[in-house]
Design a protein around this nucleic acid. Structure first.
Length: 764
DNA sequence: GTTCTAGAAC
DNA sequence: GTTCTAGAAC
């Protein structure tokens, strides 16, 4: 693999894999160094040795030279090593850093957790190996923190990871646990956020409660000033110019020449592997879909030119695996003619799933030339990406969408469990579907290049828009996560990805039961209709239905007696004047009896026999539009009362209540009636079908694609804005009451969210 | 859809 | 001990 832009010869065959690592933990007592090592060692497939000065002396306190000796011997055996001692200043670390050489990487993991937390852990600790207990702990921790010097790449580290809260620690744990014997991690400094405010004022009050030498307390101010003095040095970590950095990955010198400051990839944990946002994308439609290369290259350059300046410092990279790629050379020539800046757009030869590990090119986002089903398989880029990303991508994709129209793109956040995330630093995959000129593939355009060009242009536009929305989201997320640090020092519940992999036996059994239940129910429904005949006129169904109500009862039973309330209201709204807000010939509007948000109303269809979305056909398109418009009218009214509200309009794939009803619901989900997983997931997974999408599908396919998979309703609880996972409903609710992150890109598209006109230009 | 509650999880 | 979930009944 090589970079096309500077024709660096490729140093292939260089043995960069399978290197042992020395990981130097840096952190005060109580910061969780030993726990970190133990947890990684428990789940890692790489051979690790933990060198702990507290235990190495076999009862007596150990020495530094003992640690160095056993570290060296473990490295000789090809094992990776954790140096589990405080290592808080440069001098303490120096000799361990010297263990590194071209075949041994030296990493630092900085556990920079709040001093208050370290102290309280140390104080509580009873069986700690270093025998640092009780009130003395506070004094010791605090004295050590005064000497704290953050590690720098210039000391000789190849990689430094800063952890400032529990979720950072979790992310680092995931990264190191996932490291197989042959894997290497990207070089650089990651995760340093707010280098100021090292010592929280609160700990001084805390310290007064424990036994502390007088000088420690009275030194409060000098601690602060000395620390912040150090930080000013650290605000501009030197990256460029150090030998170990310019040899970074051997073949990526161009990366550095471009002036990229890898050390400034701080931000939140979501962005911890990023620096300059970069989208790598394959040429769309020109391979299997046989789109004309000349025309395709014109369109690529045209759309790139339009976006390249809208995207700030972000970069776009057209990737092809072949050296002889015609499309790359066409695009390269045309881009040069248009004087598109090379540091913002260039072409690259390589495997899009190994851009960083094999090509040294950091791309936080990659595009996939997807198929319309968004499924793995086929060949080419799609197969490669799904293979490399593992099953996590398939699951995450399903969460966003189930199919794709030509010209459209869908942004999928990649779970940190995916190897593409941990190895390549890819945080998002954007699936794109282009126009097809191959008669053996779906949606064949039969050489209609007018339409084809239009769709291809739309495809690249959707792709770059998706990329732009990721940049916006990450920028804001980083800001929000910093803000949260103050208000929520525990932070532990913030992103628990990876901790939720226990989907197996219980859930399987349960979903099986649910499916059986579902099957029974639909059988009953279908059965009673089938007996009557599938295509009898609606009026007759109405009649039979009435009979069911009064005589047979099987229909009633299929829905459950409690499920009839909306049907009754739709049929006889005038007798429910107490709850009904609006009646027309087509619809009835009412507040949901148990609103799941500040504003939550239902727009009922009045047609008899239209029980749910699966009953909808093209004949109902006008009715669906009416329902949507009536919903929008109410939204407008609500927004006049409270412009901060944001609304979503949509249907449940499988409703619990009979009679087709559109939910109009504000996105605060601030309601005591929202009590369980099913409530949350029915509005915040693919189970909830946006009205705009339903309209589009019914108008193009005559029916809506339902997500009647009830496992959606038992999915892990994720914030609808920042997508963080939460262990239970109360914790989720407390999170969403504060989360100001912008909504995911999928919701920002196609007017799925409706907000006040004055907010329309701002990302919600 | 909700309510109630046993028992799992913390 | 309390909190929270999830299944049964309605």
């Amino acid at each position: 693999m090589e970079m096309e832009i500077d024709d660096t010869p490729k140093p292939k065959g260089e043995e960069t894999k399978g290197k042992p690592i020395v990981v130097i933990l840096v952190g005060a007592p109580g910061s969780g160094k030993s726990t970190f090592c133990e947890q990684v060692m428990a789940s890692s497939t790489r051979p690790w040795v933990r060198i702990c000065q507290d235990t190495i002396g076999n009862g007596k306190s150990g020495t530094k030279s003992q640690c160095l000796k056993s570290a060296a011997s473990a490295l000789n055996d090809g094992k990776s090593v954790f140096i589990d001692r405080c290592n808080l200043d440069r001098e303490q670390r120096a000799e361990f850093v010297k263990l590194g050489n071209p075949n041994v990487d030296v990493h630092a993991i900085v556990l920079d957790l709040p001093a208050k937390l370290c102290i309280s852990r140390s104080v509580k600790r009873t069986g700690h190996e270093g025998n640092l207990q009780g009130g003395k702990a506070a004094a010791v921790v605090n004295r050590m923190l005064q000497k704290k010097e953050f590690p720098k790449l210039s000391e000789g580290f190849t990689r430094i990871t800063f952890c400032q809260n529990e979720s950072d620690v979790q992310a680092a744990h995931n990264t190191y646990s996932a490291l197989g014997p042959l894997d290497t991690l990207p070089n650089g400094s990651f995760g340093q956020k707010n280098p100021d405010a090292k010592i929280q004022l609160g700990i001084m009050r805390f310290l007064k409660k424990v036994e502390v030498p007088a000088n420690t307390v009275s030194d409060a101010n000098s601690i602060q000033s000395s620390v912040s003095h150090k930080n000013t040095e650290e605000k501009e970590p030197s990256y460029k110019g150090h030998d170990n950095i310019s040899s970074f990955s051997g073949n990526a010198s161009k990366e550095l020449k471009e002036g990229e400051n890898l050390a400034v990839c701080s931000s939140g944990s979501h962005a911890s592997l990023n620096n300059t946002p970069t989208l790598a994308f394959p040429s769309i439609s020109t391979s299997d879909f046989q789109f004309n290369l000349e025309k395709a290259s014109d369109i690529i350059v045209e759309v790139v030119e339009e976006y390249v300046n809208k995207l700030g410092s972000a970069r776009l990279v057209l990737v092809d695996v072949s050296h002889k790629s015609k499309i790359l050379s066409l695009v390269k020539t045309k881009a040069a003619q248009k004087n598109i800046e090379l540091n913002k757009f260039f072409t690259f030869v390589g495997d899009i799933t190994k851009l960083y590990s094999e090509g040294g090119l950091r791309c936080n986002v990659i595009a996939n030339a997807a198929n319309w089903r968004l499924k793995p398989g086929g060949g080419g880029v799609n197969a490669a990406i799904f293979n490399a990303a593992g099953p996590a991508l398939e699951v995450a994709t399903k969460e966003q969408a189930q199919s794709l129209h030509p010209g459209k793109a869908v942004v999928v956040p990649l779970p940190s469990t995916s190897p593409l995330f941990s190895r390549e630093g890819v945080t998002h995959v954007i699936h794109v579907l282009g126009p097809n000129m191959n008669q053996h593939r779906p949606n064949f355009l039969n050489n209609d290049y007018i339409k084809g060009c239009q769709i291809l242009r739309e495809a690249y536009t959707s792709l770059f828009e998706g990329f732009a929305s990721i940049i916006r989201t990450q920028g804001k997320l980083a800001k929000v996560s910093n803000e949260n640090l103050d208000s929520n020092p525990s932070g532990a519940q913030e992103v628990i990805e990876g901790a939720n992999t226990k989907h197996s036996p219980n859930n399987d059994q349960k979903s099986k039961r649910e499916h059986e239940h579902d099957y029974d129910r639909s059988k009953k429904c279908k059965g009673s209709q089938d007996e009557i005949g599938a295509d009898i006129p609606e009026s007759k169904i109405g009649k039979v239905d009435k009979n069911n109500d009064k005589i047979d009862g099987s229909m009633t039973k299929a829905w459950g007696s409690w499920a009839q309330a909306l049907h009754k209201i739709a049929m006889h709204p005038q007798t429910h004047k107490d709850v009904v807000l609006e009646i027309s010939d087509d619809v009835v509007v009412l507040n949901d009896l148990y609103p799941k948000a500040r504003r939550h109303l239902l727009v009922l269809a009045r047609s008899e026999g239209l029980d749910r979305l699966s009953d909808v056909s093209k004949d109902h398109l006008q009715l669906l539009k009416t329902m949507h418009n009536v919903g929008l009218k109410w939204v407008e009214k609500f927004l006049q009362e409270d412009a901060s509200l944001i609304f979503r309009l949509g249907y449940h794939s499988v409703p619990s209540m009979r009679q087709l009803h559109l939910h109009v619901i504000s996105q605060d989900f601030d309601s005591k009636n929202l009590k369980n997983k099913k409530h949350w997931n029915s509005f915040n997974t693919a189970f909830f079908l946006d009205s705009v999408d339903v309209l589009e599908e019914v108008s193009s396919h005559g029916k809506a694609t339902l997500r009647d998979d009830e496992s959606l309703l038992s999915m892990e609880l994720r914030c609808h804005r920042c997508r963080s996972a939460h262990p239970n409903i109360p914790r989720l609710k407390s999170h969403i009451s504060n989360c100001q992150a912008p909504f995911p890109p999928s919701l920002l598209q196609n007017s799925r969210l409706v907000l006040a006109p004055c907010n329309a230009g701002i990302d919600p």
